[in-house]
Nucleic acid binder design. Structure first.
Lengths: 143, 143
DNA sequence: CAAATATAAGACTTTTTTGTCTTTAGAATG
DNA sequence: CATTCTAAAGACAAAAAAGTCTTATATTTG
């Protein structure tokens, strides 16, 4: 479904929404350790999200990554779009270049509603919404 | 969603259901040319499906791959299970090892119903069903 | 300003997936 | 039985994805 980068990114962003604020930042190493993600790899993912203004970061002592209120209120699909691109939800399931309602591939009508529904769900729910479902101890995100 | 192998396999199997019989076999090269798939790569995919008895093949002159009536009546999910494995529909969307109704990842409840619906659709519809939706000229499978 | 801290960035390696090529083996036909 | 046709199989190559490592850059603090 999603690439590893995207899986990691989604989890990390939810983590940031639950555990960081503009003044309380999270370093890569603690996040990576908690979520069991290779730290340098996660670094790149968060850097990309920061460049695209989905989250924020500050260098130096007491620096780190964080999600502002505004960041956390963004739709989860934003993260997917940055990391895997919008084609996850639109490209043909069997790889045809041309596949549409007018000229559908054999699976089109079976897959389209599923993908549309998921896309809608991730478009309507914010990152914060997902963070709010986490257990007290931050379970539901790890292992 | 699916791997390239699986995409190719699905298209080829539908093609065989529409264009082959026990006595009218299709060589790899014609199939690959029609569907615009690398022929040797497609060969391996069809060989795997034949080993798993999803389709059949015969060597020698006038040989080739084909789908019997029985083959074509199999559920489309069979092809996916052979080529990508059943985990496509069950593995956690954000990569957690443990993710279930009891201990769901944050996206679990959003993704599960749609994946189940898709899985059910591919389980209940036969390869032949998909083949029957093809245009006269075999469009809807190519490019 | 100097030292320490933490992200930014890019080179590099490994693994997986995808694709190619060559050889082998089985079946039909003259 | 020899030839020819076609799948089967495995070695090999290329590309993409995933992961690692090193150096640079910005920021805070003494």
């Amino acid at each position: 479904m999603f690439s590893k980068s995207c899986e990691y990114g989604i989890r990390a962003v939810i983590y940031l929404a639950a555990n960081s604020t503009e003044t309380k930042r999270c370093g890569i190493k603690p996040i990576a350790a908690k979520l069991e993600i290779p730290s340098h790899f996660l670094g790149k993912i968060l850097q990309k999200l920061a460049r695209e203004n989905v989250i924020h970061s500050i260098k130096g002592p007491n620096g780190g990554f964080f999600a502002t209120e505004e960041d956390a209120s963004k739709a989860m699909i934003t993260v997917v779009n940055v990391l895997d691109g919008p084609s996850v939800f639109s490209s043909c399931a069997v790889g045809l270049k041309e596949c549409s309602d007018e000229k559908p591939c054999p699976l089109h009508n079976d897959i389209k509603p599923f993908r549309n529904a998921l896309m809608h769900s991730l478009s309507s729910k914010s990152i914060k919404t997902f963070a709010d479902t986490l257990g007290e101890d931050g379970t539901y995100l790890v292992v």
